[in-house]
Amino acid sequence: MIKKFIHQFASPKTYLFQVNKFYNYIFYISISIYVLSITWGLLFVPEDFVQGNSFRIIYLHVPASFLSQSLYAAMAIASVTYLIWRVKLAAYLIIAIAPIGAMVTFIALSSGSIWGIPTWGTWWQWDARITSTLILFIMYLGLISLHGSFSNYEKADKLLSWLVIVGFVNIPIIKKSVDWWSTLHQSASITLTNKPSIDPSMLYPLIGSTIGFFGLIICLVIISSKVQIIKRESTKSWIKDYV
């Protein structure tokens, strides 16, 4: 039942035609939300009592950090889907997400570094959260280089899927690093179980910027996955019609 559902709705052809219908909506809604939230956060939210204006980098840093882990989790789900149900689209998605994940992790690391100068007095600290995020960045690069080193795409997809699953162990380490180790990096301000420790005036634009950023990254994933599909299915007749 599940297998039939997945195979029917996750064929590259169906995906390619379906995402085209939604792409413009996702893009315009996301960019509007992001621009509005960023403007709100940068211009209208009051200064932080301790950090002054430097805290405003959260509207880039927090969404990027959240997405860097979420994208890896998405890759892990796609890997399991590919290895169990042999869904080709899942394999295309893994390699489509990897460079975007690396880029987002780089944004998270660099924005964190910039934020570190006024708040911690240093642009880099070998603390658990930052180091584990750096490991995630290297993991993304490793995944890209592993996939690129095989000319046989099917073999590369399988090996990549296994590595993504094994590497997923880093995600809970990143998430819990601030709780497990005494680190310079603050613990999470927003959790599912507790009331946010951040003031609502700062929180709402943060939620908005995270949603907007998430949507924009989805748009990037769509573009990247379309490139992968066109590249990998280039011999199919329907792709010639599509292109």
């Binding site: 180091t131 290297i138 490793g142 995944l143 592993l146 590497g167 162990v169 880093n170």
Partner: peptide, 12 residues
């Protein structure tokens, strides 16, 4: 290549 993809896992 093998070392490149697994050293990050050894870092924790």
């Amino acid at each position: 290549l093998g070392a490149l993809v697994t050293i990050p896992l050894a870092l924790p």
